[in-house]
Design a protein around this nucleic acid. Structure first.
Lengths: 124, 124
DNA sequence: CAGGATGGTTACCAGTCGTAAGTGACCACA
DNA sequence: TGTGGTCACTTACGACTGGTAACCATCCTG
């Protein structure tokens, strides 16, 4: 498939479906959580510690969404203290490669973007 | 670079920088606008028509952000009626490939995600 | 029985998004 | 003269979402 056809595909059906999915996947925390879970199974607290800046609420909400969308499996162990483990499903794992592509792009272009942003602010 | 190192890179510095950038790039409209601009230079109205569901306000705001970040160049022609052209910069063009990767993933997994979501809703 | 660990939930506020209407410059037409 | 149209925005405002901080329930340890 050519790249042009590919962009058309993005915009296929007016991009409504893609937009709806991307809107969920591509938010502030999702990619970061998925990337973190690439290590393997992790508990709630592990995630909370490894992802700096996320609140318990946002972690809970994002994990719920990921679980709902079948990207993450949630396992509750009936113990005390409770133990809840999160792990990527195969669908979740398949998101890693594209997520890395985007993250790689971001890393590569952060300096340029920040410079551009600074210049823009100075102009304004 | 191994995939593991790559995910570490995503999370490097706690993922703060990446998160900040991704937070801007990876929102509801940005990828769609960039994909649309892959066709070449477009005017405001063209974009508005080709991206269904976007309001003028959101289009303006998103284009301003893209311009600020150096992904899109904005050219105003001092004519009447006014003519404003938007085109991708080289940085903007470089975003296309990773954006396609993510969009391709989304397209591929939409059925599974929707099924999973439906099952989840039914359970709840 | 105080305090900690675990995995949350709730209340509340600020910021963002979406809708709809208005703006200003000019031209075509009547 | 004046009515309407084009273009690219801008503004006002209500709805929704994300963020912060505090609270909760259960059990174990000291």
């Amino acid at each position: 498939m050519s790249e042009y056809e590919h962009t058309c595909m993005i915009r296929g059906d007016g991009g409504r479906t893609i937009r709806a999915i991307l809107d969920q996947i591509c938010n502030k925390w999702t990619l970061l959580i998925v990337a973190t879970l690439d290590q393997g199974t992790l508990r709630f607290t592990d995630l909370h510690q490894q992802i700096p800046g996320i609140s318990q609420r946002m972690l809970t909400l994002t994990l719920r969404h990921l679980e709902r969308d079948g990207l993450v499996a949630r396992t509750v162990h009936a113990e005390v203290p409770p133990r809840v483990e999160y792990t990527l499903t195969s669908t979740g794992k398949s998101l890693i490669a594209p997520a890395l592509a985007l993250a790689g792009w971001a890393i590569e272009h952060v300096p340029h973007i920040e410079a551009s942003r600074a210049a823009y602010e100075a102009r304004a």
